[in-house]
């Protein structure tokens, strides 16, 4: 599929939004990530950092060194060079779906009219893609949740879900990195620390990486939690296509 033609939208004098669409779709996100990779290679004058989201790439830049108009021209040239992207990493992430880590599975099952075991099977069946980070450091927003697990957000947020919570709502999935109040539902919990400022690899996954979950029981969860606490990644990785 041809990548959609982007719109260039200023966000003040120090940021430029390159918007590829307004919906959540793999093709749109592919285009965002292709431009992100191309800009990382091109090292344009004045570009400070880029932030990929579901449907746009935000370029934060130093207006002393480049104007918005000049940046748009430079980005257009970079886009035409059609860079090659390195294949994303796929992470296998252990997840526990047993009490007390699966607190909302019963409620989700009741709302969706499915057996509890089916909720867990569905969550385990998908290959997720890291679409973006938001909310808080390491808060990982995933696409790829099976449609059968589409459930509206709670009307009012609830007490904070603990770090490592696997949450779903609005057709999306996420991994919580820190305890935050949320209107999302918890299906399980991973011992993996997607954000650990004391670890060499501070953030587990890059945007564009793929994630699958691997079921573990409570005693394995506890053992892996201790390993994660001492700085181990606990998640396993392999390049997609291997």
């Amino acid at each position: 599929m041809t990548p959609p033609a982007p719109r260039y939208l200023p966000a003040g004098e120090s940021a430029l939004v390159v918007e590829f669409g307004q919906t959540i779709e793999p093709a749109i996100h592919d285009a965002v990530m292709a431009l992100d990779a191309a800009l990382a290679q091109a090292k344009l004058e004045g570009v400070r950092e880029t932030v990929p989201t579901y449907r746009s790439l935000v370029i934060h830049f130093d207006p002393r060194r480049i104007t918005t108009a000049a940046l748009i021209e430079a980005v257009r040239r970079v886009e035409m060079e059609a860079p090659t992207r390195k294949p994303p990493t796929r992470w296998r992430i252990p997840a526990c779906y047993d009490a007390p880590h699966a607190e909302d599975v019963g409620e989700i099952a009741a709302i969706l009219g499915l057996p509890e075991t089916r909720i867990v099977e569905l969550h385990l069946s998908a290959v997720y893609r890291v679409y973006m980070y938001g909310f808080a450091p390491g808060y990982t927003f995933l696409g790829g949740l099976p449609e059968a697990l589409t459930i509206p957000r709670r009307a009012t947020p609830r007490a904070p879900a603990p770090p490592g919570s696997l949450l779903i709502a609005g057709g999306q999935a996420l991994i919580a990195s820190v305890a935050m109040p949320t209107g999302w539902y918890g299906v399980g919990r991973t011992p993996v620390r997607v954000f650990d400022p004391h670890r060499e690899r501070v953030f587990l996954a890059d945007i564009g990486d793929e994630i699958t979950f691997e079921r573990v029981d409570r005693s394995t969860f506890d053992a892996l939690s201790r390993a994660a606490e001492s700085g181990e990644l606990v998640a396993r990785r392999h390049a997609v296509g291997e």
Partner: peptide, 11 residues
């Protein structure tokens, strides 16, 4: 409601 995008200072 929009699908999330980036936020710059002063938005």
């Amino acid at each position: 409601d929009i699908v999330s995008d980036g936020i710059a200072l002063g938005a």
